[in-house]
C-alpha cells in the first residue's frame, strides 16, 4: 500500500517535472532541437489515457462478467462455445489490427480505440470469471441448494465471493491490456500517453519517444500494483477463498 502510494506520488512529481527538465533531455539527446514535449500537458494526456483505459475496462468488466455468469447458468450453456470461439479468434487478431479495422468506420480519435479496448479487455475478464465460477466445488453448490438458497442468493453469496480472486486476476490482466492498447491507440488519433511516442517516432524525436515510453510503462506498473493489492496471498488464505488460476 505504502509502496503503491509512494510510486504514485513519484509518478505525478515526474510528470510535473518533465517539461522543466530541458537540460536533462538536451544532455541525453544532443542532436534534437526540441527535446521537451510541450504540445500538451502531461496531466491532460494522463487524464485522457486513464479515462479511456478505465472507462473501457469498466464496460468490459461488466460485459465479461455478465457473459461469464450467463454462460455458467444451466440456461446459458449454449453461450459457452461462442465465448470460446470468440476468445480464440481474438487471439489471432492483435489489438492494433482491430483498431486499424475500426478506423475507417469510426474515423480518427478515441472511438476506434475504445471499441478495440472494450472487445479485448472483456475477454480476460470473461475467461477468468468462467474459470472461477466453474471452480466452485459441486458439493458446496449442492449444499447451498439443499439449505434452501435461491439461485440469485447462491450466485451473490457463494459463487461470486468464491470466484472473486480469480476474477480479480482477470481484471488485472484486462486493465494492463487496456493501458497498453490505449497507448497504441495514439496511432489512430486517441490522445494519451502514447501520443508523444507516436509523434516522436513520426518526427524522429527520440526524446519524446523516451518520455512517453517511460510514463506509459510507469502507469502500467502502478495499475498492476494497485490491482495486486487485493490479491494478497496471506489474506486470501485466511479467508479460505480459492486461489486464482491453479
Amino acid at each position: 500500500m505504502i509502496l503503491l502510494l509512494g510510486n504514485l506520488l513519484l509518478f505525478l512529481v515526474a510528470l510535473a517535472a518533465a517539461p522543466r527538465l530541458g537540460w536533462l533531455w538536451q544532455a541525453l539527446f544532443p542532436g534534437i532541437s526540441r527535446p521537451v514535449w510541450d504540445s500538451q500537458s502531461w496531466f491532460a494526456l494522463l487524464a485522457e489515457h486513464l479515462m479511456l483505459a478505465l472507462g473501457a475496462t469498466l464496460i468490459a468488466a461488466l460485459i465479461g462478467l455478465s457473459a461469464a455468469i450467463l454462460a455458467t447458468r444451466p440456461a446459458g450453456r449454449a453461450l459457452r462455445p461462442l465465448l470460446d470461439s470468440m476468445f480464440s479468434l481474438a487471439q489471432a487478431v492483435p489489438p492494433i489490427a482491430a483498431i486499424a479495422l475500426a478506423l475507417p468506420l469510426m474515423g480518427f480519435g478515441a472511438a476506434p480505440t475504445l471499441l478495440a479496448l472494450v472487445l479485448y479487455a472483456a475477454l480476460p475478464v470473461m475467461r477468468s470469471a468462467v474459470a472461477g465460477l466453474d471452480a466452485v466445488p459441486a458439493a458446496v453448490l449442492d449444499a447451498a441448494r439443499g439449505t434452501g438458497m435461491g439461485p440469485g442468493r447462491i450466485l451473490a453469496q457463494i459463487e461470486l465471493p468464491l470466484a472473486l480472486p480469480v476474477i480479480q486476476a482477470g481484471l488485472r490482466v484486462a486493465l494492463v491490456l487496456a493501458i497498453a492498447t490505449t497507448a497504441v491507440g495514439a496511432v489512430a488519433g486517441a490522445r494519451c500517453l502514447g501520443t508523444p511516442i507516436v509523434t516522436g517516432l513520426a518526427n524522429g524525436n527520440l526524446s519524446w519517444v523516451l518520455q512517453g515510453a517511460v510514463f506509459t510503462a510507469w502507469l502500467a506498473v502502478i495499475a498492476d500494483q494497485a490491482l495486486r493489492l487485493g490479491l494478497d496471498p496471506e489474506r486470501r488464505r485466511s479467508n479460505g477463498r480459492l486461489a486464482p488460476a491453479r
Binding site: 541525453l28 494492463v176 493501458i179 497498453a180 497507448a183 497504441v184 495514439a186 502514447g194 511516442i197 516522436g200 517516432l201 527520440l206 519517444v209 523516451l210 512517453g212 515510453a213 517511460v214 506509459t216 510503462a217 502500467a220 506498473v221 498492476d224
Partner: peptide, 13 residues
Amino acid sequence: VIPSIALFGLLMG
C-alpha cells in the same frame, strides 16, 4: 506489464 509500444520506445535510446 509494460506496454509493448513503451518497451520498444525504451529500447530505442
